[in-house]
Design a protein around this nucleic acid. Structure first.
Lengths: 296, 296
DNA sequence: TCATCACATTCATTAAAATAGAAAGATTGA
DNA sequence: TCAATCTTTCTATTTTAATGAATGTGATGA
């Protein structure tokens, strides 16, 4: 299989855009003869004429038009690469790759990304996963930022930074009921079952500690690590779910769920974990400027 | 300004994907030393290390990741180019460039393109213009097909073909009125004003000839070459518009306009004008298979 | 009509680059 | 620790690209 010679293609590209061998040669600081020669070897290797020679005019053939379209894509990408590596911001479509803990509130993710949603010049890639995988991808430069509810483990090897984005109170929420006696915390937890985030979340650890001090062992209906699932369960179950209200924002607004008790001294923190980069993503910069409260 | 060496980038691309100099060398039928050398010159020219050398492992740096993403775009385009020129159909996103006479019914255009609308693997480009410009673009391979209501002029130079897509009857349509005496053609045209397509359309020419034979000089309220404009005028005006019913399909269905008289022996023809191509557009082939009735 | 210009092209020569092969240094895995 | 496997370096060689002068060919204008 013959392989494409990209230098030849680049000359062809210049000739097509400049409209002639001579002008292209000037721009490239080469002799016209060199270009003419290379153009012909390209045509021979491709097996198609790229220009019709009408007198001294060069008119693109159909094959030439096709080649030009592809060449445009290629060399535009090449020039953008050079600009990026030279530190110049590029005007073209930008991409932001976001990793998010599977367990994280979707509403929270949405709030963070909202400034970019609907922008046609932005491509958004959101990948879910567990902390270890996401951080690995971050270090491999395959992600620009990881959204999590805990800061990154301090690691001397890599220069990870955790930006504290937000702190949300944590509440016990449950379905609205006709007769709703006031909830007494923590004593009512002896009888009212609960739905809890799993053990590796900070709010769960704090919650357990509070109850242990009070000598209470709660009735756990479910233990879920995915906030989206916890939200669904809260709507279906008789128990109270331990969540930041933002997780069930829509249900609270719609009256399906009600906040029974806001637990003092427990908050859920949201972090954006990034790597110190030499070619910073401009979109990410904008988002962090909007959202960041303090830095760690 | 340093220019990017695309051969070096191609080697880098292979090395990154194969995961090492040795494997890439095998695939490219080159010696590892050659690749290693070229990789280093590339890094030097770019001014950035592309790999971190961890022992004998090559790990992409951030600059390397960026370069790889651009290289992916470039060489994917290159391989697609080779496939296309070799006559192999490519699996990727396809583009169809359509030119349409400004004067043509939008509903007709829509019907023709309907099979492609909503297909996410298809990009549709529709450009309006006058016949001369559109045919020029067709000959320059910048358009795949031109939609028109007349066949292309026979021209020995270029191999243009006109496919007859459809023939529509032509009617006089007007706003619905409470008292609607039966329309008498052509005599009523002495008193009822009309909205007509402009003189360069075939139906206008035929219409004029018919009236001339009958010795009738119609009251022309408007003479418009754009069917979309004619449609709007028909809704606002007291006169009758001379159009193929498809132009005002929605208005007829909704009862805003009514067909007062279908003129016998006048039809509007719709053509797809294409150039005989050596690399036929597959999408266009599908559309023509569906729509074409006869060929000219 | 003919001279002239502007351009593409061809050819032989020179300059630049890419490549192979041998050998060294380094790391991984048994 | 030893062997296998990689990357890398160095130098000689091959391949490829570029030049400059010469050629041919339409277009332009007196």
């Amino acid at each position: 299989m013959p392989i494409l010679n990209y230098h030849h293609l680049r000359y062809f590209w210049a000739i097509a855009h400049e409209g002639g061998v001579t002008r292209a040669a000037e721009r490239l600081n080469l002799s016209p003869s060199a270009l003419s020669l290379q153009l012909h070897t390209l045509e021979q290797q491709l097996g198609h004429k790229l220009f019709d020679r009408q007198g001294k005019r060069l008119i693109l053939t159909e094959a030439g038009r096709i080649a030009l379209e592809h060449a445009d894509i290629m060399f535009q990408a090449g020039e953008e690469l050079m600009s990026t590596l030279a530190g110049r911001p590029t005007a073209s479509r930008q991409i932001l790759r976001v990793g998010a803990l599977t367990t994280l509130s979707r509403n929270f993710q949405l709030e963070f990304l909202r400034p970019l949603i609907g922008r046609s010049d932005v491509e958004l890639i959101v990948r879910s996963g567990v902390m270890r995988d996401l951080l690995a991808q971050l270090e491999a430069h395959a992600l620009d930022v990881v959204l999590a509810n805990s800061a990154s483990p301090r690691d001397a090897r890599t220069a990870l930074r955790s930006h504290l984005l937000d702190q949300q109170p944590v509440s016990l929420v449950g379905r609205r009921k006709a007769k709703a006696p006031r909830f007494r915390f923590p004593d009512d937890l002896r009888s009212v079952p609960v739905l809890l985030p799993s053990l590796d979340s900070e709010i769960r650890i704090t919650f357990d500690r509070v109850l242990e001090l009070a000598g209470i062992r709660p009735i756990v209906l479910a233990e879920v690590d995915d906030m989206a699932m916890l939200r669904l369960l809260a709507r279906e179950s008789e128990g109270l779910a331990l969540v930041p209200p933002i997780v069930v924002r829509d249900e609270l607004a719609g009256g399906v769920l009600v906040e029974r008790y806001r637990i003092p001294d427990i908050t859920e923190s949201f972090y954006a974990i990034v790597q110190k980069r030499r070619f910073p993503n401009q979109l990410l910069g904008e988002l962090l400027m909007r959202s960041v409260h303090t830095q760690t």
